[in-house]
Design a protein around this nucleic acid. Sequence first.
DNA 1: CTGTTAGCGCATTCAG
DNA 2: CTGAATGCGCTAACAG
Lengths: 333, 333
Amino acid sequence: MESRLSINQIADIAGVSVATISRVINNRGGYSRETEEKVNRIIEEYNYRPNANASGLRTNRSHSIGVMVPDVTNEFFAKIIRELDLYFLKHRYVLLICDSNEDSELENMHLQNLLTKNVDGIIYISGKNDVLKPEQIGVPVVYVDRSPKNAEVIVHSDNETGGYLATSELISTGCKRIAFFGDERLRSPVRRRRDGYRRALKEAGMKNLKELELSSLPDYESARQRMRETLSEKGCFFDGVFTTNDMMALGIIHALSEFGYRVPEAVKVVGFDNVSTSEFCSPGITTVTQDTRQIAVRAGEALLKMLHGESIEEKDISIPVALTKRESTSRMQ
Amino acid sequence: MESRLSINQIADIAGVSVATISRVINNRGGYSRETEEKVNRIIEEYNYRPNANASGLRTNRSHSIGVMVPDVTNEFFAKIIRELDLYFLKHRYVLLICDSNEDSELENMHLQNLLTKNVDGIIYISGKNDVLKPEQIGVPVVYVDRSPKNAEVIVHSDNETGGYLATSELISTGCKRIAFFGDERLRSPVRRRRDGYRRALKEAGMKNLKELELSSLPDYESARQRMRETLSEKGCFFDGVFTTNDMMALGIIHALSEFGYRVPEAVKVVGFDNVSTSEFCSPGITTVTQDTRQIAVRAGEALLKMLHGESIEEKDISIPVALTKRESTSRMQ
DNA sequence: CTGTTAGCGCATTCAG
DNA sequence: CTGAATGCGCTAACAG
C-alpha cells in the first residue's frame, strides 16, 4: 500500500501553495477558476484524500457523529440508524454507532470512548433516566425517543396520540374493558402512551382502573410470562389490551392462546412500533407505526444546526404516528 | 463546556514533562512507580482524555474500525454488529458503521468516507461481487459472510453444511421432490448452500433437477410473487423447499397458502438465518441458525491480528451452523 | 488571487 | 528514569 500523499506534496505537484490546496478542498473561495480546476485535477489524479486527523487537530472537529442506541437488533432502532446513516452520509459525516445493550455501565464506557474520539455531536437514545448534563458531555447532543432529565433537544414520536389511537381502535371495535400493558421501567415514551390510553378511556366515558394497568419488561418472554400469571390468578378480566411494543403484544397473544382465549375473538390486542414480525405473525397485530425516517431526519437536522452554532427554535420535536390495522383488532361479524 | 486539557497542561500540573505523561498513558514503561501513580492521579482528577486527532496524526492510527453492512435492519447483520460492538469496545476501538443498502454507489461513497477518516481496518460485508484490491484500500480488511474476488481474509458460516442439513431435514421428514429456492444474485453463501442441497440429494439417491431450482430477490415480497407465478404456471411440483433465507421462506409459505397448499402437510419448508420472525410466524419455520457471535468474534480477532502486524494463519474461517426445527417441517402422523 | 508561517496535541527520538 | 525538541498534515491568520 502506497502511503498517502500529503497536502505538501500535492501543492508541489500542482505548483501552488498548501494554502491554495486547502482553500480548494474546503471550497473557501479566493482562487481563480483556472487554479481550482488544476488543483482538482491533480487531487483526482493522485487520489489525494486529506488527513482527517490533521484537519481535526487543527479545527478541533472530527466530522463524526456518535450514535448511542440501546439495542441495534431492535428493528425500530435499526431503522433509525439506517436513516441517520443516509442523512449524515450526504453531509459527509461518519457515524460512530454504540450499542449500550440497555446497560448503564456499557453506555458510560461507550460515551467516554466517543468523547475521546472527538465526535462533533451525539444522537443519543439513552437507556438511562438521567444522563450527564450538557456541560459534562461537552458536545451538542440530540436525544431521541426517550427524554432523560437534562435533555436539551429531544425528538420523539407523538406517543400520547399513539396511545390514544391504539385505545380508540379497541373502543371502536367493541372492547368494554381495556387493559394497558406497559414496559415496567416506565420510560418517558411509555408514560406518554399511557396518558393517551387514559385520555381515550375518559373521553369514551370509561373508567381508568388501576387493576387494568399491567406491566413487565419489554420483551416477548417477560410479557408472556406476566400474562400467564395474570390469567391464572385472576382470569381474563379484560377484552382488549394496548401494549407498548409489538413483541410484548405477541407474548401476550401467545399467553392468551395458551389459556384458550382467542385473539381477536375473545380479546383484541394493539401493539406499538410496527416491527415486521407484527405483520407476519398470526394473527397480524394492529399497531402504532412510528415514522423512523422523520425521527432520524429531524434529529439529524437539529444536530447539524447545533454544530453550526445555529439556535434551535423547537427543542421538543414531536413526530406524528399512524395506526396500522391488522387482524388482532378485527371486528367479529 | 470547559475546553479539554492538553497534555502540556497536565504535565505542568503534575510537574513532569509531556514525555512522561505520554509514556504513562501508553504504558510504555520507563518511569518510576511513584511518577506513574502521581500522573494517573492527576489524569483522573482532571478527567484528562488524550486528543485522538493529535495522537492519530502522530501515529497514523485512529483506533477506529469501519464496518460495512448491506442492511442494518436485517436482523442477521444487526446481530453481527452488536457482537462486533461488544468485542471492539473491550479493545477500546470505536466502530464506524456504514449501511450500503445493497447499493454499490452508496457503498463506494461510504468506503471513501471511511478511508478519509483514517480507519485502522475494515470489517466488510460487501454487496458487490468484486471489491477493490487490498492495495487499493490500503488498510487491513476482513470480509464477512460474502467472499468477493480479491478478498484476503474471510469469515463465514459453513454454508455448505447448512444447505446439507436443511435438505437432509426435508428428506428425513419424507419429502420426495425437494426444490431449492435461492437469492437470484447467487452470492457466494447462496452458491455454497446450493452445493449442500445438491450433495444431500445426491447422497439420498435423488436427482438434481434444473427445474427444481428456483430463485428471486431475497425479500419476502419477491419470493412470494415468484412462488405465485411458479404455482400458477406449473402447479405444485414439489413437496419440500429449501430457501436461502427466512423472509423468503415466509413469502413462499404465504404463496403456497394462497393456492391451497398447506405447510407442513402438503409442502415442508426450511429457511436460513433464524431471524425472530421465523420463530413467531405460523407455522414456525425450520431454519439454519448462524452463530453471529462466533462470526463477529473471529472476524474481530483476525482484524486485530492484522492491525498488529501478525500474520493470519487461517485466511478462510468457517463457522459451524445448526439446524433449528420448527413446525414447517413437522412430520404428519 | 496567492504564498508564508505558526501552531493544534501528541509520540518519539536523543541527551542526560 | 526523565526532559527538550522535532514534526506528523492541516487551517487560518497575515502579508503581499
